[in-house]
Structure formats: structure tokens, C-alpha cells
Nucleic acid binder design. Sequence first.
DNA 1: CGTAGTTTTGAGAGGCGTCAAGGAGCGTGG
DNA 2: CCACGCTCCTTGACGCCTCTCAAAACTACG
Lengths: 239, 239
Amino acid sequence: MDVHSIKVACSSCNLRELCLPMGLNPEEMNKLDSVISSRRRIKRGAALFNTGDKFTSLYAVRSGFFKTCVTTADGRDQVTGFQMTGEIIGLDGIVSDHHSCDAIALEDAEVCVMPFADVEELSREFTTLQHHVHKIMSREIVRDHSVMLLLGSMRAEERLAAFLLNLVQRLHARGFSQSELILRMTREEIGSYLGMKLETVSRTFSKFVDDGIIDVKQRYVHIKSTDGLKQIVNPQTCR
Amino acid sequence: MDVHSIKVACSSCNLRELCLPMGLNPEEMNKLDSVISSRRRIKRGAALFNTGDKFTSLYAVRSGFFKTCVTTADGRDQVTGFQMTGEIIGLDGIVSDHHSCDAIALEDAEVCVMPFADVEELSREFTTLQHHVHKIMSREIVRDHSVMLLLGSMRAEERLAAFLLNLVQRLHARGFSQSELILRMTREEIGSYLGMKLETVSRTFSKFVDDGIIDVKQRYVHIKSTDGLKQIVNPQTCR
DNA sequence: CGTAGTTTTGAGAGGCGTCAAGGAGCGTGG
DNA sequence: CCACGCTCCTTGACGCCTCTCAAAACTACG
């Protein structure tokens, strides 16, 4: 296993307003620095961890892009999320001390390794950090519920529109464009996440292009009408 | 609002091995007793909380049965879970200080009210409790991922079979039969949870009856072949 | 420039949704 | 005790959305 360890500090990280240290004061930030033991580089296509691996740490995405996915006994799998800079991966492992999903890098990536025992220890000391950890877990639960809503009660066009809106919104929060994005995942991975086949994903993209809502060129997407997408997600905002 | 407050103690509760106090020693248990401020009775059909309500407390189901559901702007809604005795409701509220779903009693119920600020304070004191709170949240995340798998990649029969197996398994852990159960929710609520229409739920039940896997009489279900259900969920366990 | 992976597009099939009607269970009131 | 109305459940017929299977185009990369 090629683990490249690099000593790093939250306090000097430009992601600190998006990541775990959000809201901590300088003193707390320094303490947190001592918890982040190292960074780890993951090559495109490689796993940060796999189902069944012993759980030891949470990971903060420093750069790059990940997917997490669960697999059934009979080989079907489901992408449960895409994680970008500043987002936390590994919360699934806490309950059973082992990971229950795979985390795969979709491009060369780097994560900050946060041994969970240290996080727990420090959050007993700092109310701010404790509460923030709780919020991060709660946010994941709320996010999952909205995905369940998407999977359970939306049709293909609505799912893809909601997906694109969510993606640009998160990218925008990281300083990227509100209207242009590069997809880091394949049509098949999008489909797995959205509960549809890759052909349906492709067809739906094509329909959006025909309708003049977006431009698509392979992984590149230009959103010409955010309102157009929003109207697809919410057919009637009235009522 | 009809809030019936009753003073209670975890230490004498027969659910303590399923509920929050799991794994605490007697001293810790006594401390926890002081956190559980009260119980609250909820009539069938009434809400424990609604979307938008201020988040103050977690709730442990003492008796009865709940559903949680999220609603879209245009009125569609999605059941995100069913909660039975010993399970914790309200984790969705932590991230934004407001609840993001409705919690509705499906039968007359009673919950233990656990002010979250007190839970946080006590878990700074007791590593056991702190870790247990983390596990409860992680378990919810893992559960949600398996629902996403169900919604994203299973067909109607597989979904309903998986649902029934999950339900009896949880009931069995509470001392009930492994083969008989009373559904506390309507076909429509099952359908909402499983991402299918109530007619499809009904038809699928009928098919299972025709196949001799279960007996159904309204809300009563008798599972004649657990293996039959398992084979539906996992068409080929080999490979 | 060839090969593998990804994406697009078409044609056909089928699972599930939609619409509709009827039946069963249950509480309420005469 | 029975009639009534309400809610919930079942079943049928039909149609559509999405899946499946298949082939071709495009891109990336050696």
C-alpha cells in the first residue's frame, strides 16, 4: 500500500472554513492540528478504504473527488455519494468498527487522516468541536434522506436535474462556476447514484440539450438555464 | 399541545439494552437518568415533531411505532424510516437546529425526551456514552445507505422481501416472533418507503401469497418461508 | 493508428404507474 | 343490533417510462 505521509496543519489550510475546523478559534485549531496525523495520496481508481476494512480514521478530502459505494452479495452495487474538497469520508465505519462501503478516488486525490480516537478525545475537550462532529454526522443523515426522496419519488429527468443542481451548488461554494462543471464520474456512476441505467442518463442529458437547458460535451457540462433545471425538479412550486 | 410529562429512569427501563444506555455502567446509568427529563405521549396520527420545528431533544421510542418522512415543495413525500421501541428519533435536527422531517406516531406511543444539550454535556464526561452516540448516528447513516441500495437497484419484489425481513429481524430482537408480525403502517406508507405505489405493494403481497411464501390478512403477515424471502432479495448468492 | 473504455442512439420489451371499480374492516350513530 | 360512511385494501386494464439488447461513434492512450 503506497501511503505517502505528509505533516500538515488545519490552521494554515485554505479549506478550514469548509472542513472539520469550521468555527474553531485559533487555540482549538492548534489542538486540532495535532490530531491530523498525516495526509495520504490516493491514485485515480484506487480505494481509500474497502468494505470490511478496520475503521480507524475519518478522512477529509483535501483535493480530488471520491465516490462511496455499497455492494450486495450478488454483485450489484450502489453509489451512495460523491465527495469533494472539504467533505468528510468514513462515518459509516463508526458503528461496527469496520467500513461498510468502498471509498474510491475518481481522480488523483489527497486526504487528511484524522484518527477517530483522537477526534473523540479532543471533542470531549472542546464543545465547539464536539458539536461540529455531531453536525457533520447529522448533515450526512439529512443528505441521505434527500437522496431517498430522489430515488423514491422522482422520475429520471427530475433526478438528473436535482443532481446537477446539487453538484454546481457545492462547487460554487468552493469558488467554482455556477454554470459550468466537469463531471468526475462516468454515466454509469451517475446512474448508479441516481438509480437509473447509464443509457437513461445519457438520453436524459441529450433531452436537456435538445430543450436548450444545458450544453454537454462528454464530461463538460454548461448549465444555460438554472431555472430550467429547477422547474424540472419542482414541476409546480405552487400548491 | 398535550404534553404529558412523567418522571422516569433509564436504569429501571427494560429497554436499556436496546436503547441509548446500552453498555453503560450503573454509575453512568444514574447520570443518564438525570438527562432524561421526561416522557411524552403521542396519540396515533399525531406528530412528535414537524419539519421546521426547533430542534431541542432526541427521542427514544418507549412504546409504539413511528414513521419519519420528508416532503417536497410540490407536496410529494417520502417515508424515510419506521422506528420501533428503543430506537432514536430526531438526529436530523442537529445540523441546522431545526427538524428536516416529520415524525408521526402510527399508533399511540410514548417517547423519552432527551434534551440534546444535556446529552452532549454528559457525553463529554463519559467516553462510553460519547462513543455510543456516535455509533447511533453512524448506524443511521449505514441504514440509510442500505435503503439507497434498495431504492436504487432492486425491483418491487426484492424491495418488499427485504423490507419484511428487516422488520421481523428488528421485531425478533425485541422478543417478538420471527415469523409473524402486524404491520403498523398502511400499504401507501410501505410504498412510500420502498419507492413504489400502494397498488404495487398490494400486488406484490398477493404474489408472495400465491407463491406460498407468506400469508397475509390485512395488517397481519405470517412468514411461511424466510428462505423464500431471502432468495427473492438475493437471486444468486453464488457468484 | 489500433484498442479499450465511454458515450450516444435506436428498437423493442416489460415492469410498474395510472385510472377505475369493487370489497373488506371498523367506528359511529340511529 | 344493524345501517352507514370512511378508510384501507385488492384486482383489472391499459399505457408509459425505463430497462435491455445492440450497434456505432467518439475519446483517450499506448
